[in-house]
Design a protein around this nucleic acid. Sequence first.
RNA 1: GGCGGGGUUCCCGAGCGGUCAAAGGGGACGCGCUGUAAACGCGUUGGCUCUGCCUUCGCAGGUUCGAAUCCUGCCCCCGCCA
Length: 399
Amino acid sequence: MQSDVQESAEQAMSLLHNVVDSLPDGALQERLSSARAEGRPLRVKLGIDPTAPDIHLGHAVVLRKLREFQDLGHRVVLIIGDTTAQVGDPSGRSTLRPILSAEEIERNAATFQQQAMKILDDSPQSLEIRHNGEWLQMALAELLALMRTTTVAQILERDDFAKRLAAGQPVSVLEMMYPLLQGYDSVAVRADVELGGTDQKFNLLLGRDIQRAYGQPSQAIVTMPILVGIDGRRKMSKSLGNHIGITEQPAEMFGKTMSIPDEAMEEYFRLLLGREMPTDLGPRDAKRLLGRELVTWLHGPDQAREAQAAFDRLFVEGREPEDMPEHRFGVDGAPVHLPALIASAFGLSRSEARRLLVAGAVQIGEQRLDGQEQDLPAEALDGQVLKVGKRRFCRLRAA
RNA sequence: GGCGGGGUUCCCGAGCGGUCAAAGGGGACGCGCUGUAAACGCGUUGGCUCUGCCUUCGCAGGUUCGAAUCCUGCCCCCGCCA
């Protein structure tokens, strides 16, 4: 039997894989040892604000690390930020967040929680799920006490506030409260460790100060790299539209993965699969492997094979997909007006459909249209495949 | 509360009485090339019954033949002073 100190050191070492910051130095190991001395697992906190309905691969990076803690016998405390979501975390933001309704937050929270279980172990001893409304709906006196723990100067140290201030952009007092509320979450759940992306560093550190103000030991903080989105430039985020959702369809997931820039691959391998990018494959094959592995992880091996086959059929062989939605169009004897047909088939405006038509983006079967002709007889369309751009397909049916 | 600056199309930003659906850039989309990568080239980027019509430049009124551009009130943002 090895010594506690030794084992704590080993755990700390393995948990630091892929981590950007573990602060303060040695704090994680210290927390591990002291929990061990008390004969209990660590309480490892992650707060997620349900501002969007889906979890994406960016969240997955942090969730995977949490899973590592669980696999070592520690307890994850997942905080659904139903109340903080109404405040809006300004981290990394250059503008105010829109305000969500309570119902939206509720809905998002439900799917969030469910999706997180794709990665986390949901056995009761490994996972505790809380809503911060439990303690943040506090009396004014308590809120004032919380506000007394921190100075404006401390808050304004934060980079995004400083930048916005310098750029003459608004910073609301409400936003400045956000880090305090998040810090108070740590107090409420008595967190030993809190995880987050690197953009959370400030908030996580402030949580330490707030715990201290409440007479608690300060949490160790662990920050994970921010996963770049499929555009390869900006942070993965739903609102930027550069995300891959963890419940997305296999084909979609594979396709999106194939569209990431080569430079992002290595990071995807490391942060999402926990392995190094193979060096013996060319970039194209490495990316295909990445796509297969991601789909295998989140859907299964069969789905991964199918996704790749469907992809090849579509983009390598240039054929139509095996199944596609059917679009029924009405027939009244007159020729079918294509902009109207395209618009209703794919939810575009007619003007947009017309532009695509003129730009040569539209195909009926094998026939690419040049946009000279905007009306076609129904017989020429019935049963044909309508293709707009590279990836919009549907089978036309006269009704 | 006072003084000054500002709110323009998805974003940034030019326009400051007609030639404005509004320069330029970004993003996005389309075509070409290709590995649904990058880079590059070309094009598109309010709506429609589309050589024209309608709606849009914080909101509401007004002046004018005509307003994103001028006037009045209101809302919001930024700075300085208090």
